[in-house]
Design a protein around this nucleic acid. Structure first.
Length: 803
RNA sequence: GCCCGGGUGGCGAAAUCGGUAGACGCGUUGGAUUUAAAAUCCAAUGGACUAAUCAUCCGUGCCGGUUCAAGUCCGGCUCCGGGCACCA
């Protein structure tokens, strides 16, 4: 018979709720602070996923341990509630998406409470709340004031048949996901945030934060800072100039053609009449391709000659100008100098179009480009130099000729910030009749989303808000104007939400400065690795901006970051409705209880690793928890309870405290819980059960299975809650008392073990060597051989090397 | 294609400043208890060879290297997963 999880869990959840057990007094600066945060969920209609449960349990367990360790813990939750599904609900039902959003949030909240998460529910936020997005708009205006928000033409996925702009996700192989209509890329005036202005700061901050190395590397590569040279090519019979950016100025003498992005503004002017038809056709073809397709190196490099010639500034040589889709308008200057001998993409393009090649670095370029370092040839004054020397010499020469300059370039592109959607924060600017653009005054924030009669797109590319006639027309400083009808992307609200939890009801500011200074940065942040660049980079950008504005004193938002892995279906596939392999946390809770679900998800493996769901897992967790419960509730075991110590258990008990304390801190719950199982197995064999250890065991379990831990605490005869009882401490002497086990190897193969004093001295280790050589299996193996040397690694191993 | 991870028993995994590979759990098998079953408790469990829980050999995706010693480090592959800027 197992414990009655339903009664027990609901009983304690009620106690926590009624007492507001986990309410945080943010102004209590007497204890050290600890801010633990999950990436907040998008409240979808399907409700909480077992994947959410994993990350949320990990942070909840850490929060609970930190409270017991005497920290003032901030552990809030909220909802990232703008998004596509709500908009589609609105279009379908002709109802405001807030209805759909609020229903889903109610459902999420019920589910979260039933899992026993120790959130401070008075701090709950949602990004769609005008009291929240007032400050999202405020930050946008601050950026606008600083010139970091600007309008520009950018390519969007335009579907003429649907009359709407589509998200990348809604486009599959150049066709719309709904209906399969052709999609083309067409330029549209958009708001853009100048994240590139923070390129260096975003890069410099990386070494100061405690994040997974892989994520730091991905951000570094995404920012993609490179130092290079801009070379200016004159155009033959024209006063136009083509600027190219290159990191390989050393190869300039080998340049045999120039390629512009098909969207490059000069294409129109430089295309000759005889090439016009081919260029038009090519541009049309490229319009249907995504950047991803265009930069896929496995695809054939396509392009066409546009009829004009550029003049290589270093040697005056005339070279053909092509357009090619492997050159992106958004990177560098949207044009490249092509050196087929020393760049693989150029090599492939040149082979296909039968363009000359000229080798300028010694190395083999007969089958493919030689991209390595080497001695320069065919390069006039740069002959004999290596890459670095030649780069410098050639760039200096270009500068002298007025045909070049050094330049730092980022792969990072400015952040496209407009969406042609309804369900997002309105961008608070007005386009005045006189052609100027004015920001909405701060005093008029929040600029609320108006209700619409119809949420469908207009069909001509105008966002749905352009239908809100009354809202649209406004006056500012006595002048008439039209409001901006684009809305912000979902990323906006999630770029600063972590700061709002600190002072969520503040009407005057993002938060009380004193509180923001105290609580930021977030100490531990947990969320999926799929956010490694976008969300985590945007949030860092906004944080650094607000730091520069004097609003935040810290320079990074998230000090320590953990990723949680995906939970796959039991078939090893990603969980999806269509595969029928989804698992609902509600079903698992109904059958085994919230604690069993929490325990299973923490025990099944490392939090950061993706792994399949096991249907046996939660049941096994419940079996173990029953086994624990019996020690506290079953008369047979209660009779063994003792006020006295039990020396036999000292080592394993203290080892368990140590392991759990260390492992929980770094979210390695699986190994900590495994050690708790070892302790429980020992308790089952023991002749007496010290009550002190039973209390300690309940405390160690409390972070992961809080409901059961409260119950065990009461079964031990204590009144009240276990949550704030001081975390158990390790008796190191009990750990040191035990001898260590040395492995004895001959030529790396294990021949036996010897128990020996821990941290023995050099003389004592001589004795160990003798004992090792005397082992039967060692003697047998060594027979007829000579011992060459003996290596002793303290507390670990004796390695005998024989000839 | 580019950037970043990962591959260990029948299964989830543990062990990475190089030091006893498989802790802990699932599953399986055997035993105790029971009229019986469930539940519970105890024990065994990588593979080959074996009467054997002796010994020996093999074994951490594949090929090669460094070392007294390699799951761990190095070189070259391969397969799987995440991201690629309008999904969040």
């Amino acid at each position: 018979m197992g414990y009655e999880f339903k009664n027990i869990e609901e009983k304690w959840e009620k106690v926590w709720e009624e007492n507001k057990t986990y309410k945080t007094d943010a102004y209590d600066f007497s204890k050290p602070k600890f801010y633990i945060l999950d990436m907040f969920p998008y409240p979808s209609a399907v409700g909480l996923h077992v994947g959410h449960v994993e990350g949320y349990t990990a942070t909840d367990a850490l929060s609970r341990m930190k409270r017991a360790q005497g920290f003032n813990v901030l552990h809030p939750i909220g909802y990232d509630a703008f998004g596509l599904p709500a908009e589609q609900f609105a279009i379908k039902n002709n109802k405001n998406p807030s209805i759909y959003t609020d229903q889903n949030i109610d459902n999420f909240r019920t589910q979260l409470k039933r899992l026993g998460f120790s959130y401070d529910w008075d701090r709950e936020i949602k990004t769609t709340d005008p009291d929240y997005y007032k400050w999202t708009q405020y930050i946008f205006l601050k950026m606008y004031d600083k010139g970091l928000a600007y309008e520009d033409y950018r390519l969007v996925n335009w579907c003429p048949a649907l009359g709407t702009v589509l998200a990348n996700e809604e486009v599959i192989d150049g066709k719309s996901e709904r209906g399969g209509f052709p999609v083309e890329r067409r330029p549209m005036k958009q708001w853009v945030l100048k994240i590139t202005a923070y390129g260096d700061k975003l890069l410099e901050g990386l070494p100061t934060i405690n994040w997974p190395a892989s994520t730091l590397t991905m951000q570094k590569n995404w920012i993609g800072r490179s130092e290079g040279t801009v070379c200016v090519f004159d155009v033959k019979n024209s006063d136009k100039k083509v600027e190219v950016f290159t990191t390989r100025a050393d190869t300039l003498f080998g340049c045999t053609y120039v390629v512009l992005a098909p969207e490059h503004p000069l294409v129109k002017e430089l295309t000759t009449p005889e090439c016009q038809a081919a260029v038009d056709e090519y541009q049309k073809e490229v319009a249907s391709k995504s950047d991803l397709e265009r930069t896929d190196g496995s695809k054939e490099k396509t392009g066409v000659f546009i009829g004009s010639y550029a003049i290589n500034p270093i040697n005056g040589k005339e070279v053909k100008i092509y357009i090619g889709d492997y050159v992106l308008a958004t990177y560098g200057s949207g044009a490249v100098m092509a050196v087929p001998t020393h760049d693989q993409r150029d090599y492939e393009f040149a082979v296909k179009h039968n363009i000359d090649m000229l080798q300028v670095i010694e190395g083999d370029c007969s089958k493919s480009a030689y991209e390595g370092d080497g001695k320069h040839i065919n390069s006039d004054f740069a002959n004999g130099m290596n890459n670095q020397e030649a780069k410098k010499a050639i760039t200096e020469k270009l500068i002298e000729l007025g045909k070049g300059r050094y330049q730092v370039n980022f792969k990072l592109r400015d952040w496209l910030f407009s969406r042609q959607r309804y369900w997002g924060e309105p961008i608070p600017v007005v386009h005045m009749d006189d052609g100027t653009t004015k920001p909405v005054p701060y005093s008029q924030l929040p600029l609320e989303l108006p209700e619409l009669d119809d949420y469908k797109p207009t069909g001509d590319g105008q966002p749905p808000l352009s239908k809100a006639t009354q809202w649209l027309n406004t006056t500012l400083d006595g002048q008439h104007g039209l409001r901006e009808t684009n809305t912000m992307p979902q990323w906006a609200g999630s770029s600063w939400y972590y700061a709002r939890y600190i002072d969520p009801h503040n009407k005057e500011a993002i938060g009380d400065k004193k509180l923001l200074d105290h609580w930021l940065p977030v100490d531990v942040y947990v969320g999926g690795a799929e956010h490694a660049v976008l969300h985590l980079l945007y949030a860092r950008f906004w944080h650094k901006f607000l730091h520069d504005e004097g609003i935040f004193s810290s320079s990074e938002p998230f000090q320590k970051l953990f990723h949680q892995g995906l939970i796959l279906g039991s078939d090893g596939q990603k969980m999806s409705k269509s595969l029928g392999n989804t698992v609902s946390p509600d079903d698992v809770i109904a059958e085994f209880g919230a604690d069993a679900l929490r325990f299973y998800e923490m025990f099944k493996g490392p939090v950061d690793q993706s792994m399949p769901w096991s249907n046996d897992g939660p049941r096994a967790a419940k079996t173990f928890l029953d086994r624990v419960y019996r020690l506290y509730a079953d008369e047979n075991y209660r009779q063994l309870w003792s006020e006295e110590d039990n020396k036999d258990l000292d080592f394993v008990y203290n080892a368990t405290i140590k392991k759990c304390t260390e492992d929980f801190e770094i979210l390695h719950f699986n190994t900590g819980l495994a050690q708790i199982m070892v302790l429980v197995n020992e308790l089952y064999k023991a002749k007496s059960l010290p009550k002190k250890m039973l209390l300690g065991l309940a405390q160690l379990l409390a972070p992961v299975v809080p409901h059961l831990a409260e119950e065990l605490y009461n079964l031990l005869g204590f009144e009240g809650l276990i949550d704030f009882v001081a975390w158990p401490s390790v008796n190191e002497a009990a750990l040191d008392a035990k001898p260590v086990v040395y492995a004895i190897q001959v030529n790396g193969k294990l021949k036996g073990t010897i128990e020996f004093k821990k941290d023995a001295s050099e003389e004592e280790l001589e004795d160990l060597k003798k004992q090792a050589l005397a082992l039967d299996r060692v003697v047998a193996t060594l027979e007829g051989h000579e011992v060459k040397k003996i290596i002793v690694v303290k507390n670990k191993i004796v390695s005998i090397v024989m000839k």
